[in-house]
Every structure is written in structure tokens, then in C-alpha cells.
């Protein structure tokens, strides 16, 4: 019961986030220390991209002399528009950094138009 209460009262914060785009895709990198592959949950709900990372800090036995590391989960929602190819979203996590690559639809990409001379 005590454990359950702790889970419910855990705060949710927004992770430090970089969003960056090139011709092929939109790349998001989020800093989520303490989040592993199993505790990370990324889903797309209609036009929303929801990123939820449960943080597991190291177990503490002893007294804190300094405490600066937050003990809160990461939760963020992003709206994505119709230029994003929902079927083509990849995510990876490495050393606390989550990289989400959102593919841009073929129709929304820049095209070069050949010019014909007559």
C-alpha cells in the first residue's frame, strides 16, 4: 500500500529536448537519465506523440548528504502534423538519451522538378 502511494504521487517532468530536422526526417533527442529500454513507452495517438519514461534511480541505502537528482518520471506530449509518416517512426535509447526519428512523408518532401526545353 505504501509502495502504491509512492507510485501515484511521483511527479512527471519534461525531459530536456532537442528537435531538429533535415530533408529526410525530424529527429528528436531527449535526455532521460535513469530510463531503460523496458521502462520507456512511446506511442502515437491520432496526431499526438506521447513519450513516457519511467525513471529508476539507484536504490539508496543511507542518508543523503547532497540531493540534486530529481526522482520524477518523464512525460511529454507532442502534436505531429500530417507531413509526418506515422508508420515510419523509430526510437532508440543509449546511455539515457532517447532518439526518436520521425520520417517525413514522400509527398511532403522537397522535389526537384525537371525542366524540359522544347
Amino acid at each position: 500500500m505504501k509502495e502504491r502511494k509512492e507510485l501515484e504521487s511521483k511527479k512527471k517532468i519534461q525531459a530536456v529536448c532537442d528537435i531538429y530536422h533535415n530533408e529526410e526526417s525530424v529527429v528528436m533527442t531527449l535526455e532521460m537519465p535513469g530510463v531503460t529500454k523496458d521502462s520507456l513507452d512511446i506511442k502515437v495517438d491520432k496526431n499526438k506523440l506521447i513519450i513516457y519514461g519511467k525513471r529508476t534511480n539507484h536504490p539508496v541505502n543511507g542518508d543523503y548528504l547532497i540531493r540534486e537528482i530529481l526522482d520524477s518520471d518523464f512525460y511529454q506530449e507532442f502534436t505531429i502534423d500530417d507531413t509526418i509518416d506515422v508508420e515510419n517512426i523509430n526510437a532508440k535509447i543509449d546511455n539515457g538519451i532517447v532518439t526518436v526519428t520521425l520520417g517525413i512523408k514522400e509527398t511532403a518532401k522537397a522535389r526537384t522538378i525537371e525542366i524540359q526545353t522544347r
Binding site: G62, D63, Y64, L65, I66, R67, E68, I69
Partner: peptide
């Protein structure tokens, strides 16, 4: 950020 924890 840093945490310092001391035990016995």
C-alpha cells in the same frame, strides 16, 4: 546534478 549518500 549529484547525489551523495552515506551509510555505515
Amino acid at each position: 546534478a549529484v547525489d551523495v549518500v552515506e551509510n555505515d
